[in-house]
Nucleic acid binder design. Structure first.
Lengths: 251, 251
DNA sequence: TTTGCTAATTGGTCTGATATATTTCATATT
DNA sequence: AATATGAAATATATCAGACCAATTAGCAAA
């Protein structure tokens, strides 16, 4: 009986052999409008900062109802392409998606799939050494200042685990920012909180570890200051993989 | 006159000194509901695959109108947390965001900010060597088979630029997939199309280049087959940076 | 068993009214 | 003259209720 049902299902759901048409997609009004506007925005036909027509106008022009228009606007808003303001002179303004849009998306992905810590650590190990290399190449005076400040704060907090942890992550992120690569920054911002929140508490507790970490941070800071990409990368690679080994990579 | 107006604006918009309340945020109904549902989903209180109550019920329960409920659902749908089906037994089903959600978000970011090619290349240079390393460590028999097949296709298309390009990107992505790291896969899928579409055509044209590329690919394929992470990483690092040098990194 | 009809259920869309936020501008106040 | 104050104007925000359209369950007929 089960078999019978299965067969029936297979025949309806599966390919009919003769023309295998794969699941016709019926577009919804809001989706169509959203796609249209998205295109206009991405192609630059609606400039950044420009205002969209108001909802009633959009509804009239498109022939859709205001509710459909509004659903489309909400979608684009979530995508980070619009900001909407209420009131006179309000409306929907076109804007560029910020890194935050990526961060939120990746964080949703990570938390709803309960991504293993080891995956996050692997991703970090991929990104940070390269970021350090780029930082050594492209750092500005302000970058160096920020990195040094966080490093100093680390040194000042050798005895305060909590302060040490915050200074640690700030230093790491300052380096990533100094890479001036928006994608790497976004990727790293997406995973930093999760990865550091867990790994640090477990690993930085033992006496002496914090001193060692501080010393390596000093070397990396110097390499970036000195503008030595290869050395910055090499040291950072060793640094993050030292973490990885401590953790055991099997978590 | 301008000064006068500026002063007035500053006094209204700026801090009043006494209690400095910073821009009260008035939450919108749809946002509130969306946040609530998002929490329920991420926290796992609504299981994956479970159906939400239908729209009318959600409206009744929450005390909101159906339009507000629908706006909230559209938002969560864009975030990849829901899929909605029409008809009897239809409704909104909870699901996990797919890599595709990340890919779309990053691609919007890249294209609407006209991210420089050099940034994409830098990001790739960060990801691919690590991915190759992980691939050598975690590859399955199927992974090896896929990588080898794409490599063979590359060898078969040394004279057909177009076929060569397709085999090239497929090989690269097969390696990234063999890393079995969803984040690296997502990041790489996000940038691969853009980066390979541009860099390849310019750089793989000259006679002899394709032969060299094929040779290196062979070595990397072997390292992954052999399960040699360090070697796979070293070779891939050289490989992608060879590209980078050809391009000039200033594009 | 298969096919086709019918009804039930659910999302999709539209209309139009009202509420609320925000700016503009004229007016009153100091 | 500078500054509150308040009414009007103009957006979005929200709601209520109707009807359309897709999909499925269940029954009936071939």
């Amino acid at each position: 009986m089960v078999q019978k049902k299965d067969t029936a299902k297979t025949e309806r759901g599966g390919a009919q052999r003769r023309f295998s048409l794969d699941r016709i997609k019926i577009p919804k009004a809001a989706d169509v409008l959203a796609s249209h506007l998205r295109d206009e925005i991405v192609q630059g036909r609606i400039a950044n900062g420009e205002m969209l027509p108001n909802e009633r106008e959009l509804a009239d022009n498109s022939g859709l109802s205001r509710s459909s228009v509004r659903e489309a606007l909400r979608m684009l808003e979530i995508e980070g392409l619009l900001v909407t303001k209420q009131g006179r002179n309000g409306g929907s303004m076109v804007c560029q998606p910020s890194r935050d849009t990526i961060v939120k998306t990746v964080n949703l992905y990570i938390s709803s799939r309960k991504t293993r810590l080891s995956s996050l650590v692997e991703a970090r190990s991929a990104i940070e050494p390269s970021a350090a290399m780029l930082a050594a190449r492209y750092r500005t005076a302000e970058d160096v200042e920020a990195i040094s400040a966080h490093h100093q704060r680390l040194l000042d907090n050798l005895d305060d685990l909590d302060g040490f942890l915050r200074a640690n992550i700030d230093w790491h992120m300052a380096i990533v920012h100094a890479s001036h690569n928006d994608l790497l920054i976004a990727f790293m911002e997406s995973i930093a909180q999760s990865v550091y929140a867990v790994t640090n508490v477990e690993n930085l507790n033992p006496e002496g570890v914090r001193q060692k970490v501080a010393k390596v941070h000093g070397l990396i800071t110097d390499a970036i200051k000195a503008g030595d990409p290869a050395e910055a990368k090499r040291l950072m690679d060793r640094h993050v993989n030292a973490y990885a080994e401590h953790i055991g990579m099997t978590a």
